[in-house]
Design a binder for these strands. Structure first.
Lengths: 341, 341
DNA sequence: TTGTATGCGTTATCAC
DNA sequence: GTGATAACGCATACAA
């Protein structure tokens, strides 16, 4: 148990050099001669020295930390992405600061504060909504270049965005169902204000139109991606006089509870009605029947977002405005889709 | 777009006071007269001043940040706890730094570094394993008092621990099954080196003994809490010549996939075999039949851990060593348990 | 109650 | 290639 943490001065004394040299050994080892460099490293080792981050941050005006804004940390879909973001950033020496954007109280200004007080070098946000407070804070600190959207995005702010190819995913779903012979397809959408819900719903309508399908307004049900929403949607859709033969749910969670409610109401999946999800959460492969769904590359989304941000933090990425990178999606055919009854 | 962030000196100039007064207005407003306090606040507002965290941290030798160590961020069970930890800490002005302890590369020493370089004031760990590197770093920085276990824990390090009452939960399960008439009960455990797995397995054996049940060694199957493990366990248990009539799975994930595999193998739940889980994840209520399980108070666990740590950071909590707080558990009876065939 | 002056531990700017 | 030294922005002991 040491009295106190050794400082750079102590290392310099032990190594018989100046503090400047020790500092250089840490940040730009090439600029030192081999022997002195070795002396310094030995001294660092023998003293057990670690740089004081606060002092370094103060001097360099950097934070060595990145803020990740997650809407609902409890949602496993997001936490998987957070995990891969964390991997990449940690491997590059950045700390990851997490904020839950859904949390009522602090978040509104807390995010802005992180930039204003310099405790963060950049941000990856999984939340397509960006508050004005945040936007202004980014402007006034010239931080707009160090913000990356991941999964969700906002057209209001012209920022780089890593996202799944939602349009393609939706088209794969419709094409798959049409190929099976379905002509009456329903859609359980996400919440109206959500960009993903909007894009998928629009792509769904367009693709149906291309196939010449008539989609009744009753067949478009608004949900919120949650388990509860899927169950409620099932009740509404199964009660319709003209019942669809297939349903495209905008999330696996809604698809799962949709199917459960069907079973409870005596409707067989896929014999009576086909169901497709979106996400390919791990459970999709472990239910019976397995869930046909669109796989999103969650770890890829996180990794790409982290790499894009890293490039910007290094000043490499010069592209201005909305730079969109699409992560691949794929249709995973399992047991919840079949030919219509 | 300002030229540069205003500093405390600028505020002092505008308010017509000294920098010390501005600093005091921020940290101990009571010690100022009402009028000067007002002047300072006005100046802060008009200049758009924000404290520079790095400078403050350097001066106060605090970080204003807490490290949360999560084994597998992608696991929804942990992320739900992380969420409530985050809520409490954020509300108290602490940033939350997240680390994935399962991640192969950095984590081993990265955690220790956080303490050694002073970038963190304390830690909540959801991982019962604490590396020696971390332990020594805690010792040498006198940080042992600012570490709290949550969910999992380690008897090796005498530290405060917030945990569910795993023993009670397990007893509730056994009693429930026995009350239904079961005498042959299997257990799908967690991985051998996991403290939760160990505690639940031991409690299971003890409670079965109290009820006079003979538990065949074949009926204890080691898993790893994952979906894959539940399916594998089902295959093994259903193949036994002397098949149990009920199974207690140490996690809901294993229970889910256990049930799915049963269905695939033509074994009906709960008619042929009863299944109980542990955790009460959200999905448990949205499957058919609903999963009988032990509810853990995830948000409570996180909240209590955060509060315990906050008290220690404030220096209030004087209790030394292993201070254990049990979060309540409850048996949630749903549809996967019934009388034996 | 308020102001003055110093130092927190580093890095960057000069010299040499 | 290396050393002396001045910031970085804030909080606090001490004076007033």
């Amino acid at each position: 148990m040491k009295k106190t943490q050794p400082k750079i001065k102590d290392v310099a004394f032990v190594a018989g050099v100046s503090t400047a040299t020790v500092s250089r050994a840490l940040t730009q080892p090439d600029r030192l001669s081999a022997p002195t460099r070795q002396k310094v490293f030995d001294a660092i080792h023998s003293t057990g020295y670690r740089v004081n981050q606060a002092a370094r941050n103060l001097r360099t005006r950097r934070a060595g930390a990145v803020l990740v804004l997650v809407p609902n940390l409890g949602n496993p879909f997001f936490s998987a992405i957070l995990s891969s973001i964390n991997d990449v950033l940690a491997a590059n020496g950045y700390s990851v600061l997490v904020f839950d954007s859904q949390q009522p109280g602090a978040s509104e200004h807390a995010v802005a504060d992180c930039f204003l007080n310099g405790s963060v070098d950049g941000m990856i946000t999984l939340d397509g909504h960006m508050s004005d407070a945040t936007g202004h804070a980014l402007r006034s600190t010239n931080m707009m270049q160090q913000v990356v959207f991941c999964c969700e995005w906002s057209d209001q702010w012209q920022l780089p965005s890593i996202r799944s190819n939602n349009g393609l995913g939706t088209r794969l779903v419709v094409d798959h169902l049409v190929a099976l012979g379905h002509r009456r397809i329903a859609h359980v959408a996400g919440p109206a204000e959500n960009i993903l819900a909007e894009v998928r719903k629009k792509a769904f309508a367009q693709r149906c139109a291309i196939h010449g399908l008539d989609i009744s307004p009753d067949w478009i049900v608004e949900g919120d991606f949650s388990l509860g929403a899927g169950a409620r949607a099932a009740e509404r859709i199964l009660a319709l006089s003209e019942r669809p033969t297939a349903v495209f749910c905008a999330s696996d969670a809604m698809a799962l509870s949709f199917i459960t409610r069907c079973q409870q109401l005596g409707v067989a999946v896929p014999q009576d009605i086909s169901v497709v999800g979106f996400d390919d959460i791990e459970l999709a492969a472990f239910m019976e029947p397995g869930l046909t769904t669109i796989r999103q590359d969650r770890s890829g989304l996180g990794r790409l977002a982290a790499q894009e941000l890293l490039a910007r933090l290094r000043g490499e990425q010069k592209t201005e405005g909305a730079h969109v990178i699409f992560a691949p999606v794929a249709l995973i055919e399992r047991g919840t889709t079949a030919a219509p009854p």
